[in-house]
Design a protein around this nucleic acid. Structure first.
Lengths: 110, 110
DNA sequence: CATAACAATCGTAATATTGCAATGTAGCGC
DNA sequence: GCGCTACATTGCAATATTACGATTGTTATG
């Protein structure tokens, strides 16, 4: 019914899904990649770079901040965003683990 | 308006977002983890393990198959699913690249 | 203090996702 | 063939997401 039955799954499975959801929009990938190459960026700048309206960018920034991947600090009358290094590494490990848990020696049923 | 403006973004950004979306549900994570540990599994078995109705599992399997992460082969009147090794590694690299592109030496605006 | 600049929030429309009952389809045993 | 089992597909209701105009803070700056 449009609502995920999170109670059926482990905390780890839900955490991975939530993290993946944070990455599941090209605008948020674009924001992250721009923060990676520019090191830091204010909202207005991201609005220009990405090409979506300001409220939309603000909304995506809010989701990225909620996932912990980025953090923002007020600088004068603008807000400066950047990657959160510790969280970035933690998420890298969580997702990396999922993939490295698979041993490709496994044979398939084909 | 509920529709992503994919035309604003690079093919790579859209690809990452689509892959992340495939992982953005705990049921699909649970399915993948079960396929990792059990090596292979038929649909009915997954229905029992996950605890969602059969049509719902079928739908999640369809999305995972569309992303290429798993493949299914018909065995008699049941269908056996497993991780696709090549695709698994490719996706691992695509997502891994995103995270490793970040150099944590970067300073933040805080 | 008025005003401009910047960004967050609110409200709303359009679309997507999730979940399941009902139904359809295909293989197997008889 | 007929019934049975396993799975996919369809159709629908409930909820979530995406996007943006309008509005509301918040912080300089004149």
């Amino acid at each position: 019914m449009g609502v995920s039955k999170t109670e059926l799954f482990t905390e780890q499975q839900n955490e991975i899904a939530v993290l993946a959801k944070a990455l599941a929009h090209p605008a948020r990938i674009a924001i992250l990649q721009h923060l990676i190459s520019a090191r830091q960026c204010i909202t207005g700048n991201l609005v220009d770079v990405i090409g979506l309206a300001q409220p939309t960018i603000s909304q995506h920034l809010k989701e990225l901040k909620a996932s912990g991947l980025i953090k923002g600090s007020v600088e004068g009358n603008s807000v400066c965003y950047c990657i959160d290094p510790q969280r970035w590494e933690a998420v890298q490990n969580i997702l990396g683990q999922l993939f490295s848990d698979y041993n490709s020696e496994h044979s398939c049923c084909s």
